[in-house]
Amino acid sequence: MQRVNMIMAESPGLITICLLGYLLSAECTVFLDHENANKILNRPKRYNSGKLEEFVQGNLERECMEEKCSFEEAREVFENTERTTEFWKQYVDGDQCESNPCLNGGSCKDDINSYECWCPFGFEGKNCELDVTCNIKNGRCEQFCKNSADNKVVCSCTEGYRLAENQKSCEPAVPFPCGRVSVSQTSKLTRAETVFPDVDYVNSTEAETILDNITQSTQSFNDFTRVVGGEDAKPGQFPWQVVLNGKVDAFCGGSIVNEKWIVTAAHCVETGVKITVVAGEHNIEETEHTEQKRNVIRIIPHHNYNAAINKYNHDIALLELDEPLVLNSYVTPICIADKEYTNIFLKFGSGYVSGWGRVFHKGRSALVLQYLRVPLVDRATCLRSTKFTIYNNMFCAGFHEGGRDSCQGDSGGPHVTEVEGTSFLTGIISWGEECAMKGKYGIYTKVSRYVNWIKEKTKLT
């Protein structure tokens, strides 16, 4: 034993070699072989497995989906700052455009905790909710729209109204504003409101030439003092309507412009014939205590009207009353817009006519005020429907199939267009061939041609 100890002390290297040989010859039971080890760690190889990531292109799944990435790591994937920024906006807080917040056709661009709407022409605001041009839906104005110097929408209202708090709607500024039905039992019968379409306001006024200088022999019209197929109006439903009495009662109609003036057809009036105007009328054979009678003290036909040349060209006249009318729910003026808007309103496509005229061709006159909704007829169809001249200051309205029309005794009465609950004068009943005849239409004086003249002559002093 002493000898062994001496050998170990003198030859430590020998001992180490012996131990190493023993270990190498022993069977290893701690580690699995290569094949079995792979069965336990069965993990798919990654895209760049075996390579240094710093030297390969980034992978979106590896960089940002398996674990949260930084902007720089995302930049490695896209290799483009702009594309990385677009991805980053949604990656950080989701897609803010998912709810489609942009209105009126706006395009949404996502941002971090926010979004941006790219608005089409005519709109602005956070969600493109603000109209900035009158060309689109009248700028959301209830009545009139004008573009300011910086191309912003400025709404306005006709006389007797003021802008509401929203700067879009119009509200009454006087007790009985024009064009409004205020009798409670008839307010439910107000005709369907007309909503502004998209309009090209630059070209809204037709490029028409008034044929002022045409000389033409007097034409022989049949029954051209021209509501057939209409309905009984309720008291106060058309408070701007008046009836004219002269040699015979209810020979023509008219509309209240203001307390002192009536507008009617020029062919209705004769110099030297006494005319009485009755406002607030409903049943011409009954006294309903809503009527107001006034005498006409002055007749002003349009300066281009000449019955000797043509009885229905420039067929418009103004009547001055001896005493002002007292405005109330049964006696209310009709609204008159400017030339541009009167023309736009007419193009809405349908209007209402009213009167006490004959209820059928050569038949009896109506006792109760009649009204009828009539569609506008395109000019080409209008011209083809008659052998008589249709001037540019006239328009056609009615039904091709016949059966409904204005008729004798309705002449001078109103053709009105309702705009968001307020009625505007767009025409004056003038003439036609018979009444409600198939293929024939009622012919009306186009008020847009005469609004400046009306307003100039009827100013209240």
Rank of each mutant, 00 (worst) to 15 (best):
R3F: 10
N5T: 12
M6R: 14
P12H: 10
I15G: 04
T16A: 11
I17G: 02
Y22V: 06
Y22Q: 08
L24C: 09
L24Q: 03
A26R: 02
E27V: 04
C28P: 05
T29G: 08
T29P: 02
N38W: 08
N42M: 10
P44V: 13
K45S: 06
N48F: 04
N48S: 14
S49W: 05
S49E: 15
L52E: 15
E53I: 07
F55P: 15
Q57H: 12
F71C: 04
F71K: 13
E76W: 09
E76N: 15
V77F: 05
F78Y: 14
T81E: 08
T84L: 05
K89R: 13
G94L: 09
G94K: 10
D95P: 04
E98Y: 09
S99R: 05
N100Y: 08
C102D: 00
L103A: 05
I112Q: 10
I112P: 04
Y115L: 01
E116N: 10
E116G: 05
C117T: 01
C117V: 01
C119Q: 01
C119A: 01
P120D: 10
F121N: 08
F121W: 09
E124T: 07
E124F: 06
E124A: 06
K126A: 14
C128E: 02
C128P: 01
C128H: 02
R140L: 10
R140S: 03
E142R: 04
E142F: 03
F144Q: 02
C145H: 01
K146I: 09
K146W: 07
D150I: 09
K152N: 09
V154Y: 11
V154M: 11
G160H: 04
Y161C: 00
A164V: 05
E165A: 06
E165Q: 11
K168N: 06
K168L: 10
S169V: 06
E171N: 08
A173I: 10
V174T: 10
V174K: 08
P175Y: 05
F176S: 04
C178R: 01
V181Q: 11
S182A: 10
S182H: 09
V183I: 12
S184M: 05
T190G: 11
E193Q: 05
T194Q: 12
V195P: 09
V199M: 13
D200S: 11
Y201P: 10
V202P: 14
E208L: 11
E208R: 11
T209D: 11
I210L: 13
L211W: 13
N213K: 06
I214Q: 12
T215R: 10
T215N: 10
T218D: 07
Q219F: 10
S220K: 12
N222D: 11
N222V: 08
D223T: 13
R226Y: 11
V227K: 10
V227E: 12
V228D: 08
D232N: 12
A233V: 08
K234P: 06
Q237S: 07
Q237T: 08
F238K: 03
F238N: 03
F238V: 06
P239F: 01
K247H: 09
F251G: 05
C252G: 00
C252V: 00
G254Q: 00
G254W: 00
I256Y: 01
E259D: 06
K260C: 03
W261L: 01
E270K: 11
G272P: 12
G272A: 08
E281A: 11
E285M: 08
E286L: 13
T287K: 08
T287L: 13
T287A: 13
K293I: 06
R294F: 00
R294W: 01
R294D: 00
V296T: 03
V296W: 02
I300N: 03
P301E: 06
H302Y: 06
N304Y: 09
N306R: 10
N310I: 02
K311C: 03
K311R: 13
K311S: 06
K311T: 06
Y312S: 04
N313L: 09
N313A: 12
D315H: 01
I316L: 07
A317T: 03
A317G: 03
A317W: 00
L318K: 00
L319Y: 02
L319P: 00
E320L: 04
E320R: 02
P324F: 03
L325K: 00
T332R: 13
C335N: 01
I336W: 01
A337T: 03
Y341C: 03
N343R: 08
I344Q: 08
L346I: 07
L346T: 08
S350D: 08
G351D: 01
W356T: 05
G357L: 07
V359T: 14
F360G: 10
K362Q: 07
K362E: 13
R364E: 14
L367V: 09
Q370G: 08
Y371Q: 14
V374I: 09
V374A: 11
L376Q: 06
V377C: 03
T381K: 05
T381S: 05
L383E: 13
S385W: 12
F388P: 07
I390N: 12
F395N: 01
C396S: 01
G398A: 05
G398F: 03
F399N: 13
F399A: 09
E401M: 12
G402M: 15
G402T: 08
D405S: 15
Q408N: 14
G409K: 13
G409A: 13
G409Q: 12
S411Q: 14
S411V: 14
E418H: 10
E418R: 11
G421V: 03
S423R: 11
L425A: 01
G432L: 04
C435V: 03
A436S: 14
G439I: 02
I443T: 07
N452K: 13
K455I: 07
T458K: 02
T461G: 06
T461K: 09
